[in-house]
Nucleic acid binder design. Structure first.
Length: 618
DNA sequence: GATTCCGTTGGTTGT
DNA sequence: TACAACCAACGGAAT
């Protein structure tokens, strides 16, 4: 097939982070070319299939988004669908351009570190093949690169920087949402669409981080067009038994818009929402209205969200009713998402780690990630500089620190994949600057792991905004840097108490009673500090406070036990504060030479009290 | 440049 | 029970 002339554009639209038809600037630009042939394609990227942890719930959600999008195309043009091709984009796209005579490649911009590398490679290949590339922003309120540019070329490290940069872009207003297209041009005829004659490149499927979920043979990459040669959404060939996917949440654009409309109806709530006033102790979040995966997969436009909220604000103001302001209101929450995107954009892969990261203050944490190899690659290993810290980390991870507020939250996280934003603050502060002095990198990994399978992770307590941190790597990493006072935030003396903070929100200890049921009968006075309860009461309430929470640590297994606190919190708090103060005085950042060559250690002295040294056992 | 002010979500004590 | 004052004390923006 010969490439068409510019007057007969053959447009390949590459769907990635935009599984929707409404408000897609890239799709809009593609259709503005007046294509004579239009082919909307999804290429399965093995990087995401095998290297990102995706449980059955998220697989199902993604496939639903794809199916709905495909239906959406079909309803606009019976000859159309989402053409799902089973090969990595770097190898298949050049073959498709040639085979289909593509003149234009159009896609939505993605500033994630991996996506940037991939897209740079694709653009180079397109240039070589004489294919014109059109890229449009669409995933965020503002183009992250433009925010960076308007922020004097620097990553956005505060919400005021974002606001100011946004004002310079368009007086602080994101683009108004675009309507979905009213019609879609035809693809090629059936014969020309067929890819049987193409070579099939193999993909790198080792290691497969999702192997545990594959109950059938993974045939995802065995046929370019799928088992029935029909480019169908791969419900049957990914090897994952989707009957395991128990989530009640449905993917797809129509569902996303329905949920949004439902949320927006509650005008007073939308207008007066202020995040710090939401309780971290309320379990049973309203998990029926999650929009987070929709924002991630792009089945909902964040700009549509913004303007729908703006309409409510306008109405309320007209009626002289109160409206909350940035940064605690809903617009503020969306701006924080943009802030993390525009912080990560110029830093790329380095943003996710401490070594080499110019915005990450260097602190002498325990259990730091090992520095990257010469070629910049990281293997995920970390230095166990202290056995004690390693044990604290494991106990934190497993919810057996002996601090019921922390343990309840960590168990809730493990069981349900969701904890409230302020609950996250508690456990994150506790692991890093306010207790264990363990690197934020370890915590970020655990959040990524535990928030993945269940899909219900949340940055915020606005149910519609419930935000999957795994989906938006920049937000997870950024929040950990924030909480550990590594970047974005510096008031390290503001430390969350594992006792007082929870009590403030939940004096009865209901969250603890639910997730640490062995403590359910403790009275209000002792529920946050069970080790202070008299032995007689512990017996009366059916739970002894002893051991470290491992099953083997107690010989008498007929009786419930709850671990003793793994350290004296006030003592640890002081040690951490001293450590942070010293680290701030030293003033190194991840990109400094002394961090890279390991000589930072000499800057941190040899005092016994340094948190980086082994603690005295008392 | 020095100084002042402010920062999305703290803790403790005292009224 | 609600709220204010104070604690402790950093970086970055504004002045």
């Amino acid at each position: 097939m010969k490439a068409s002339s510019a007057s007969n554009p053959v447009v390949l639209y590459w769907h990635r982070t935009d599984l929707r038809l409404h408000d897609s600037p890239a799709l809009h630009a593609a259709l503005a070319l007046k294509p004579s042939v239009f082919i909307p394609v999804w290429t399965w990227d093995p990087h995401y299939v095998y290297k990102a942890r995706v449980g059955p719930n998220r697989w199902k959600f993604l496939l639903e988004c794809q199916s709905e999008l495909s239906k959406g195309y079909k309803s606009l043009n019976p000859k159309q669908k989402l053409w799902v091709v089973r090969e990595g984009p770097q190898t298949i796209l050049p073959k498709l351009w040639k085979h289909w005579g593509v003149t234009h490649l159009v896609f939505e911009k993605d500033t994630d570190a991996y996506a940037k590398d991939r897209d740079t490679a694709i653009v180079a290949l397109a240039e070589k093949a004489g294919v014109e590339v059109i890229v449009r922003m669409g995933r965020t309120l503002f183009d992250p690169d433009e925010l960076v540019y308007k922020n004097n070329g620097k990553p956005t490290m505060s919400i005021t920087q974002v606001e100011k940069a946004a004002v310079k872009i368009n007086n602080g207003n994101p683009d108004k949402p675009l309507d979905p297209p009213e019609s879609i041009p035809d693809p090629w005829g059936e014969k020309q669409m067929d890819l049987t004659s193409l070579d099939h490149d193999s993909v790198d499927n080792k290691p497969d981080l999702n192997a545990e979920h594959r109950t059938k043979k993974d045939e995802q990459y065995s046929n370019l067009m799928g088992p029935k040669n029909d480019f169908a959404v791969p419900w049957d060939d990914i090897g994952i038994d989707l009957s395991q996917a128990a989530t009640p949440h449905r993917g797809g654009e129509a569902e996303a818009l329905r949920i949004l409309a439902e949320c927006i109806e509650n005008e007073e709530y939308v207008a007066q929402f202020e995040k710090p006033k939401t309780s971290p102790a309320a379990f049973e979040p309203q998990s029926t209205t999650l929009l987070s995966p929709h924002l991630h997969f792009g089945s909902l436009s964040v700009r549509k969200f913004w303007w729908d909220v703006q309409d409510v604000f306008n109405k309320q103001r007209k009626g002289k009713k109160p409206v909350a302001s940035v940064p605690t209101n809903l617009h503020g929450q969306l701006l924080f998402r943009d802030m993390y995107f525009a912080a990560q954009a110029p830093i790329g892969h380095r943003f996710a780690r401490s070594h080499g990261n110019e915005v990450a203050r260097f602190i002498d944490w325990h259990l730091q990630s090992n520095p990257p190899d010469e070629d910049g690659s990281v293997d995920g290993s970390y230095e166990v500089d202290s056995q004690e810290a390693e044990e604290w980390f494991q106990r934190w991870k497993e919810g057996r620190t002996g601090f019921p507020w922390i343990d309840a939250l960590m168990r809730q996280l493990r069981q349900e994949g969701w904890i409230h934003h302020l609950g996250r603050h508690s456990v994150a502060c506790f692991l890093t600057r306010g207790g264990c002095y363990v690197s934020w990198e370890r915590g970020a990994e655990v959040f990524e792991e535990l928030l993945i399978d269940r899909m219900l992770s949340s940055m915020w307590n606005f149910p519609a905004l419930t935000h999957n941190v795994l989906d938006e790597t920049a937000c997870n990493i950024g929040n950990w840097q924030w909480l550990s006072c590594t970047a974005f935030y510096a008031m390290f003396y503001r430390c969350y108490s594992p006792i007082a903070f929870g009590k403030k929100w939940d004096p009865e200890g209901n969250l603890i009673r639910r997730y640490c049921p062995e403590l359910a009968k403790f009275d209000k006075k002792h529920i946050y500090e069970p080790w202070k309860a008299p032995i007689a009461d512990q017996k009366k309430w059916g739970c002894r406070v002893t051991g470290d929470g491992t099953p083997t640590s107690d010989s008498d297994d007929t009786e419930n036990t709850y671990p003793k606190p793994m350290f004296d919190f006030d003592e640890r708090r002081q040690i951490c504060l001293d450590g942070m103060k010293h680290a701030y005085d030293v003033g190194l950042h991840g990109s400094d030479a002394k961090v890279k060559d390991g000589t930072w250690k000499t800057e941190f002295g040899n005092s016994e009290d340094r948190p980086s040294k082994k603690q005295k056992t008392s």
